[in-house]
Structures are given as structure tokens and as C-alpha cells.
Computed example of a mutant assay.
Amino acid sequence: MKILILGAGAIGGYFGARLQQAGADVTFLVRSRRAAQLAEHGLAVRSPFGDFDVQPRWVEATAVREPYDLVLLTCKAYDLDGALEAIAPAMGPSTHVLPLLNGLSHLDRLAQVFGAERVVGGCCSIPVTLGPKGEVLHLAKMHRIAFGPLPGTSPDARAKLEQLHGFLSKTPVDSVLVDDMRQEMWEKFVGLCTLAAMTCLMRAAVGDIVSSEEGTALMTEALDACAGTATANGHPPREAAMGGFRRMLFDPASAGMASMLRDLEGGHRTEGRHVVADMLHRARAAGVDPGPLRAAWCHLESHELRARREARSTE
């Protein structure tokens, strides 16, 4: 099975390197700057599970000439349109695409462009970033990836996903082949949106928020809004997932925060529109009280609008 991974950044680089470590046929689709880094340094992974290096095979967008069996999308949600254009030459009549993007809205766009039968579901949870030389820095022991067919996915995807799972099973990665992938994605959406909405709105870590006078009540309202929206859409979070969210979101000693907050405070683009705003709109459509999601999206969108205005004023 030939696998193409869009990007060799933190997430694509980590899971792609693990797949290559297990013997999979992996090619990275990268921009010229990343290609130069890979040529000079290779692909290095620094992980609590052991450091390792691989010599990756890569291709730039203009050089993609043939279809692959499976394409992994690991871009930010706001880069989706550019990513679709980049992988189009790799999408043959039997190619499947596995996105590891946050949220749910990308699934409709992928189905629109490539057909629902070519789209499988995926999500991951991993604290990872890139170092100064492009090395992948795995920051903690969490590295879970889940994938599986969606209701419209063609049956021939199953064999590819089983092969993918087989490769990852040879590595330390917590890999799960899921039968009900939409349930899995909704559960991640609930936890991620609550964390992102509240830490961005308050500009604080989880422990700081729930230690404040109104923090626990507001965190509860946000979680209830997200879980209620999932339930109204036919995917009530299972108790195991809700228990994990409560441990993550109500720990007064936690310094945890969403990567979206780091992007916000760093002056970078955020996925607020694709996570917080999308959940807010789905809550309203389902008649669910969105609670603090309204203020969180107002905060994020106002930041976006101010950044655009100030950028125009300097032109």
C-alpha cells in the first residue's frame, strides 16, 4: 500500500515517521522549505517512547504524478482548500483520503470534492511540535490515533485501514480501528471545543479557570452545550469519554490549555471558526443553549477582525 502524507509537520511528521519505522511505504508531500530541511537533517523524532531518525522520501506538489492508495491529510483546518488542490493529482479512482483535522466540517468538503466513498474518518490526540531544525518533538506520552470508515465510505477502504492499523501496531502508538468513526469524531469535537472555547475565552489554563469563583460553573455550561449538541445530532458522548473530559477540564492543578490559545496569544491564525464557531452554529440549529460558546466565538472572531484591520492599515 502506497501512503502519501500531506505535510511533514508535527502531526504528519510524527505519524509518518512511525509508519516508516514499521516498514510502510510512505511519501511526504511537502513545500520547498520543508524539503530542504528533510534533505539536510532527515526526519528526527524526539519522544518519551524513544528517539529515532528516518530518511524520508518526499515530493513537492508539482512533482505528484501518480495516484496513491491512501492519503493522510494533516493540515490545519483553515488550509483545507490549498491541501485539496495539492493532493488532487494523487487521488486516483480507488484512492482513499484520511483527514486528521480538528472538527467535523471538513468531511462535507472532502466528500464534495472527491466523493463520499473516498473519504474515511480520522482523529488524533498528541502534544507535538517542531524544533528549530524541523525535528518532531513529542512532548508527552499521549499519541493516540483513531480511524475508520464513515457511512458513505466504499467497502474497499477496510483492507487499507487494516493494513494501516497493522503497521501502527508495530510501534508504541495507541492506534484504534473504529467501526463507528462519527461517534469517535463527535466525542473528540466535544472535548476539544470545550477546552478551546474556555481557555481562549479566559486566556488561562484549565486550573486557573476552575479555581476562579465562576470558572467551574462556566466550564460546566460549556461542556453541557457541546455534549448536548452532540446528543442532539445523534451522537451522545459515552460515559468513558465524558469521564475523561471531566478529569481534563476540572482539575484545579492542571496547566493544560488548547493549542488554539497558544496560536491566539502568538498572533497566529486559529481554527476557532472550524471548532468553536462550528459547534456554536450546530448548537443553535439543534435548539441547544450554547452557553459560553457565544462569548468564546465573539472573542476569537473579534481577534481575527482586529488583526485583518490592523494588517490593512499597514499596507
Results as ranks from 00 to 15, higher is better:
Met1Phe: 08
Lys2Val: 00
Gly7Met: 01
Ala8Lys: 00
Ala8Leu: 01
Ala8Gly: 01
Ala8Val: 01
Gly9Ile: 04
Ala10Pro: 02
Ala10Gly: 02
Tyr14Arg: 04
Tyr14Glu: 02
Gly16Asp: 08
Gln20Asp: 06
Ala22Arg: 05
Ser32Phe: 00
Ala36Val: 07
Gln37Ser: 13
Glu40Pro: 01
Glu40Asp: 09
Val45Lys: 06
Arg46Met: 10
Phe49Pro: 00
Phe49Ser: 15
Asp51Ser: 08
Pro56Asn: 05
Leu73Gly: 00
Cys75Trp: 00
Ala77His: 04
Tyr78Pro: 05
Leu80Lys: 07
Glu85Ile: 11
Ala88Val: 09
Met91Asp: 02
Ser94Met: 03
Pro99Glu: 02
Gly103Gln: 07
Leu104Val: 13
Arg109Val: 14
Arg109Trp: 08
Arg109Asp: 09
Gln112Ile: 00
Ala116His: 15
Gly121Cys: 06
Cys123His: 15
Cys123Gly: 12
Lys133Thr: 15
Gly134Leu: 07
Glu135Thr: 04
Leu137Ala: 02
Lys141Pro: 09
Met142Ala: 08
Ile145His: 03
Leu150Trp: 06
Leu150Tyr: 10
Pro155Glu: 10
Ala157Gln: 02
Ala159Trp: 10
Gln163Met: 14
Gln163Gly: 05
Gln163Ile: 07
Leu164Asp: 07
Thr171Met: 10
Ser175Asn: 07
Asp179Tyr: 03
Asp179Pro: 01
Asp180Gln: 11
Arg182Asp: 00
Gln183Trp: 11
Glu187Lys: 01
Phe189Ala: 06
Val190Asn: 02
Leu192Gly: 07
Cys193Phe: 06
Cys193Arg: 09
Thr194Glu: 04
Thr194Phe: 01
Ala196His: 08
Ala204Met: 10
Gly207Trp: 05
Gly207Asn: 10
Ile209Asn: 11
Ser211Cys: 09
Ser211Phe: 02
Glu213Asn: 08
Leu218Trp: 15
Leu218Arg: 15
Leu223Tyr: 06
Gly228Arg: 05
Thr231Pro: 00
Arg238Cys: 11
Ala240Gln: 12
Ala241Leu: 06
Gly243Cys: 03
Asp251Lys: 09
Ala255Leu: 13
Ala255Thr: 14
Met257Thr: 06
Arg262Gly: 02
Glu271Gln: 03
Ala277Phe: 08
Ala277His: 13
Ala283Val: 05
Ala285Trp: 02
Val288Glu: 02
Arg294Ile: 14
Ser302Cys: 10
Glu304Thr: 05
Arg306Gly: 03
Arg306Gln: 13
Arg309Gln: 12
Glu310Thr: 13
Arg312Cys: 01
Ser313Glu: 15
Ser313Ile: 01
